[in-house]
């Protein structure tokens, strides 16, 4: 049976259609989820897409965290539901305390869009198992508030437990501490990633096809492959 991947649309979500396209290209059945509807419609995994949910007023992701759909997603995530938060989705996951730390304004204070090399540090999550540990990939990064911060102890713990999922290589685009581009929760089912794998899934429109790995990973994970 085809895996059902839900893509949430908040007011102000922008990359929801791109995330859906990427999941579809990877072979998933895509189920649109609506911010105001707590029903997850039986999906096997969820993508929180990029954008500016609720205008990102107050603080990025701070309002989205309280959306009805997030209550169900947060509960599900604690029970092992795979959730990938991309960019604004990562911010929402942090605001929802499903991931530690926070995303703050880029150190240089500008929005920045470039093609970025990452090193996959952990292939042990539900969303990265199709990669090799240490694999270097090229996907777009584009954000104004993507500077990952956390206290030293949290960072040490993330490193020690293999929860740094991806790191920026060849230049840190936003000032993230320890060049962190993505992290996971302890169980590895919840992953937050600042760069945009959904924009690197087609030869014609992306800098590479490297982003597809995140979406094939979840299918592999759901098919029962060891994460």
């Amino acid at each position: 049976m085809t895996a059902r991947i839900g893509v949430v649309t908040f007011p102000g979500s922008l990359d929801d259609r791109d995330a859906a396209r990427a999941a579809r290209i990877a072979g998933a059945e895509v189920v649109p989820l609506w911010h105001d509807d707590p029903d997850l419609h039986g999906v096997d995994g969820v993508v929180l897409p990029g954008g500016f949910s609720y205008g990102d007023y107050l603080r990025c992701g701070a309002i989205a965290r309280f959306a009805p759909v997030m209550e169900t997603i947060a509960a599900g995530a604690r029970d092992g539901l795979p959730v990938l938060g991309i960019c604004n989705g990562f911010q929402i996951l942090c605001e929802a305390h499903l991931l530690p730390g926070a995303l703050t304004r880029n150190q240089h204070l500008h929005f920045r869009n470039r093609d970025q090399v990452l090193r996959i540090e952990s292939a042990g999550t539900a969303w990265t198992n199709a990669f090799q540990p240490g694999q270097e990939i090229l996907i777009p990064v584009k954000n104004g508030e993507g500077c990952y911060v956390a206290d030293g102890r949290t960072l040490d713990e993330l490193e020690a437990t293999g929860r740094v999922v991806a790191r920026y290589l060849g230049g840190n685009p936003n000032g993230s501490l320890r060049d962190i581009a993505g992290i996971s929760n302890e169980a590895g089912n919840v992953v937050g990633l600042m760069p945009h794998p959904e924009h690197a899934v087609e030869a014609l429109t992306g800098p590479s096809l490297d982003g597809l790995g995140f979406f094939t990973s979840i299918l592999k994970h759901l098919a029962g492959a060891p994460a």
Binding site: H108, H110, D115, G171, E202, P207
Partner: peptide, 23 residues
């Protein structure tokens, strides 16, 4: 801050999917 160009030959654009013009 905002605009330090990529420090190498990696393209900033799109022409990268086609193997012949891969980045």
């Amino acid at each position: 801050g905002a605009g330090a160009p990529l420090a190498d030959a990696a393209p900033s654009g799109f022409e990268t999917g086609d193997a012949a013009v891969a980045p």
